[in-house]
Amino acid sequence: MNETSEFHQEPVNGEVGGAPASSEQKQALISEEINRRQFLTTMLGLTGSVIGLSLAVPLTGYALSPAMVKEKTEFVPVGSVTDFKAGEPIKVNYSFRKKDGWVDTEVKKTAWVVKKDDNNITVFSPNCTHLGCGYVWDAPSKQFKCPCHGAVFSMEGEVVAGPPPRPLDRFETKVADGKLLIGKLLEGEG
């Protein structure tokens, strides 16, 4: 870009005492002007980048904000330990309050509680590990049966028959003040 813009044709300060500047002087002035122009262009780009970046960082953080929140599961009570009888799985309905952004909602869920004795209680997720159907307890055969594709689970959650890829998923459990609480859902292993 070494074309002269309108500005460079105006009288330049370099012409001291009215004497016309030599062509060399003019050339020097023009190249100086171009350098100044390049400097300003660079500074403009730099300032623009700084402003753009200082905008882009907060805006990106703002948009990605939900991904930075750590999900934490709290233990929720599902009933008293004495509510359950050994060897007799019971389907429990439980609810807890959940913060959904700015909305405080009540979530209703179910789970299967299997008690062997007071110190040995397992809580299963109510969904079959095959495709997520809800299974039922078949008292005569003492097995869990899924109506969708004929899956059968033992009382311990092991796969007895059918297509499920793994045993039933179970919740972390703990007992406090005689109450049974469940926490994180753990994937059935096997």
């Binding site: 907060p58 703002y62 930075m68 700015w102």
Partner: peptide, 15 residues
């Protein structure tokens, strides 16, 4: 929702 933006969203208060 405005409270949520100000208190919980990353850089929400700034924006």
């Amino acid at each position: 929702s405005v409270e949520y933006i100000s208190k919980e969203v990353t850089f929400g208060k700034l924006i």
